[in-house]
């Protein structure tokens, strides 16, 4: 039953996290990823044997037998989760910085989208494609992106080509 409770909790966390990362908005994205991280950690925790209150700390100066081993909480998933927690902390921190930088550069609060109009269809070798009509860029598209690149990639603007 406890396992089922844990499973329900994991499910709820996953659902909330997935819902959040699908919403537009960069803050929601990070928070949603945080929820999903918790969900994954708990799911991993559920893979081991759940033992109430017996931390896997073997008393000093004592020979542990196989029979006794069963009384401790399963240490292996704990080590794995610890690794996973730390790794996801590193990743989360990095994403936070990415979003910070993106915001600082573009002032946009939306989750990133590709610029639709950079998909160029005019093929000078193919007369037919000039007939192609570009769809209107939806509001999701990050219109500024490409122009900004040009500003940044231009070494004259950069002032240092060396």
């Amino acid at each position: 039953m406890t396992a089922i409770m844990l499973a329900v909790l994991v499910g709820v966390l996953f659902a909330c996290g997935a819902y959040m990362i699908l919403l537009r908005g960069q803050i929601k994205l990070v928070l949603g990823l945080g929820l999903i991280t918790h969900a994954v950690n708990l799911a991993l925790f559920g893979t081991g044997k759940l033992t109430r209150g017996a931390p896997p700390i073997v008393p000093h100066e004592q020979q542990v037998t196989a029979a006794m081993a069963g009384q401790f909480a399963d240490p292996l998933p704990q080590a794995l989760i610890l690794t996973a927690i730390v790794i996801s902390f590193g990743v989360t921190a990095f994403i936070v910085v990415l979003i910070y930088r993106r915001d600082a550069l573009t002032g946009s609060d939306l989750a990133p989208g590709e610029l639709a109009t950079v998909i160029n269809t005019s093929d000078p070798f193919a007369p037919f494609s000039s007939r192609m009509v570009m769809p209107e860029a939806a509001d999701d598209y990050d219109i500024l992106q490409f122009e900004l690149d040009e500003v940044y990639d231009n070494p004259q603007a950069e002032g240092a080509d060396e």
């Binding site: 925790f45 017996a54 896997p56 909480a73 704990q78 610890l82």
Partner: peptide, 8 residues
């Protein structure tokens, strides 16, 4: 804490 993982 409840399930015996103080390090975690």
């Amino acid at each position: 804490i409840i399930f015996g993982a103080p390090d975690l």
